[in-house]
């Protein structure tokens, strides 16, 4: 292995493990090559650069601007599963849920009745045995459907499909103004057994600055089965929550 090959392989090493993450030929090369060790160290430093913070009122300023600049009301379009939603609202829901939700939404779904039946239809989807349907149900929830928080938490905890759990965590952001959500986050994190979902919950905790979940995060950091990258993300989150709010 020459230096160029070694350095290219270094680019794939896990940030938190650094030199310890190298195995086999790469490890042997790094042990004998100061040039490549310096290269790896530079990459570590680059990855460890702190993220600059915007001013604390940026979000409030943006929300004010959004209210003024909201686009003209789009015409309602009929989507394949028979509910009338605005095309833009549907697109934005897809963005929030990401690609997994989108893949689910493109599948054909049973027709649901309009009006009051909508909520029922959404919940039926959320409880469907098909994970594609559950994803679809999650994409259709909105912040008015407060009673579904419990359902979301149970999907986060027990759904067999990790993508559905992650989508349920995304859907919890819709309830971020609700104190009941905040009070349950620590417990949800303690009960969670999948690292990807644990990290998504930690992101939610940080975004809500829910310091009551700190204990669960510390436990996760000490005892969780996390990869190096996931662990350093949890450590950064703990450090962020430990700071007094600005």
């Amino acid at each position: 292995m020459n230096c160029e090959q070694a350095q290219l392989e270094c680019l794939d090493l896990d940030q938190a493990q650094g030199l310890d993450g190298a195995v086999g030929e790469l490890k042997a090369h790094l042990e004998g090559c100061a040039e490549c060790r310096a290269y790896l160290r530079l990459d570590d430093h680059l990855r460890a650069l702190p993220t600059p913070e915007p001013s604390p009122d940026l979000e409030a300023r943006f929300m004010a601007r959004l209210r003024i600049q909201a686009p003209p009301t789009p015409r309602p379009v009929r989507v394949s599963w028979g509910w009338r939603v605005s095309g833009l609202a549907a697109a934005l829901l897809l963005l929030i849920g990401g690609a997994a939700l989108d893949r689910a939404l493109r599948r054909e779904a049973p027709r649901a009745e309009e009006g009051d039946a909508r909520m029922q239809g959404t919940l039926r989807l959320v409880h469907s045995p098909l994970s594609a349907d559950r994803m679809k149900g999650l994409a259709l929830l909105d912040a008015g459907d407060r009673s579904v928080q419990e359902t979301l938490f149970s999907l986060v905890e027990r759904d067999p499909d990790t993508q559905v759990r992650l989508a349920a965590v995304e859907a919890l952001y819709l309830f971020e103004g609700d104190p009941r959500l905040r009070s349950q986050l620590g417990a949800a994190l303690s009960r969670q057994d999948r690292p990807e979902v644990q990290v998504a919950l930690v992101d939610l905790v940080v975004s809500l600055r829910e310091r009551r979940a700190l204990e669960a995060m510390r436990r996760l950091e000490r005892e969780g089965k996390l990869s190096g990258g996931q662990r350093s993300r949890v450590q950064a989150a703990i450090a962020q929550l430990d700071q007094p709010p600005m």
Binding site: F62, L66, L92, L95, I96
Partner: peptide
């Protein structure tokens, strides 16, 4: 709702 969705993404 749309404004709220963009707000969530921004957040």
């Amino acid at each position: 709702g749309e404004t709220a969705h963009v707000g969530t993404l921004f957040h």
